[in-house]
Design a protein around this nucleic acid. Structure first.
Lengths: 195, 195
DNA sequence: TATGACATACCAACCAGTATGTATCTTATT
DNA sequence: AATAAGATACATACTGGTTGGTATGTCATA
């Protein structure tokens, strides 16, 4: 990826996080990085392509990093790994950070009903998160870490849902402690999955 | 409230649910209801006022209906009442319905970082939900329904957060069963709060 | 000399908001 | 009861700024 293209995506990502995709003013967004409209429409056919590239190239890899690693860690205790991830999420959640919300969640809320291509791209990300968590929980069952009656798929969905819900509710209060306390409750739920 | 004003708010509410507040084209929105721009700017000073009125007059009363009733039901089993509410939410959640998401959650995600007046109006709604749930749980403790070690405030936050998270994740898949399965997990969590 | 990588100027559509006009309804006065 | 005088409740036409996108030109490199 060229340097200019990367600058465009990063600037678009930042502004989309604040103002949404509809609120994104692409040329103004990149101007601060010294990139002009000419460059923008050289690398992207239209605004939609920018949004999709942000999802595919910035959001998806970032979000899937942990979940992919989770499935690869065969033999490990999945609950401990998820708990670690929650601790990590909590540690990076400042008031300023939660005020802008979860980039993926933001886009889901805004764009799912408006653009089917966006929706499918985002569904692919969440489905992958579910798949990874489900597999990890199943492996955890086989390895004696997870209670055998745990409904792996539903639990996977619930975990992701709790995280995103936590971001949502922290956002409206600009209050990271809301997120942290929610993660504590989710943590309790996770401990109940132990065998 | 006059009939015309009501028509404007209802039309704006519907379109805001799909396209967000930024995406709302107020005059086009009300045109289908036979109302013109003249009427719009007769009842509202600007677009912002429409959005705020939608929150205060349509969303807030609708959302608080259950939670207010919950606090009033002193002596009742709060967990049973909340479970009933989850069942109700599940029963009205069709694929088409979840595809549009929770109107409050949508607006929170979109507008919290962009408009402080919006944010405060929405925070008032969520705080009220927390307050009602917290009180109900505390009453439940006093009446022997709820485990005494239950952190009432945190649990209240978690419950709301799970519901909103459930809407979020169901939205991207246009799949009501995601919401239903999440409510099942939340239901399990609630049962664990019993004394 | 052809192509990639931009920069700049431009355009048509759109959109929030305004200006202006008018019919109806209310209220004070006779 | 009749009428004049606002006030209310809109409808229509217009405007100025914005926005996504395009057309065109330039410069460096292969």
């Amino acid at each position: 990826m060229t340097d200019t293209r990367e600058k465009i995506l990063k600037a678009a990502f930042q502004d989309m996080r604040r103002q949404g995709f509809q609120g994104l003013r692409a040329d103004k967004s990149i101007a601060a990085a010294g990139v002009t409209k000419g460059a923008l429409y050289h690398y992207f056919q239209n605004k939609e392509e920018i949004g999709l590239a942000v999802i595919e190239e910035l959001i998806a890899p970032d979000y899937l990093l942990f979940y992919e690693s989770l499935t690869r860690a065969t033999g490990a205790d999945p609950i401990a790994l998820i708990q670690e991830h929650l601790t990590f999420l909590t540690s990076v959640s400042t008031d300023e950070n939660v005020a802008l919300g979860c980039p993926l969640n933001n886009l889901i809320q805004e764009m799912s009903p408006l653009n089917e291509t966006f929706r499918q791209a985002m569904q692919r990300v969440t489905d992958r998160m579910y798949d990874c968590l489900e597999r990890a929980l199943e492996q955890g069952k086989a390895n004696g870490f997870v209670h055998l009656e745990t409904p792996a798929r539903q639990s996977a969905q619930f975990i992701v849902s709790c995280i995103e819900g936590g971001f949502s509710m922290a956002k409206v209060r600009r209050d990271a402690s809301i997120f942290k306390e929610n993660m504590e409750q989710l943590s309790n739920y996770l401990e109940n999955l132990r065998s």
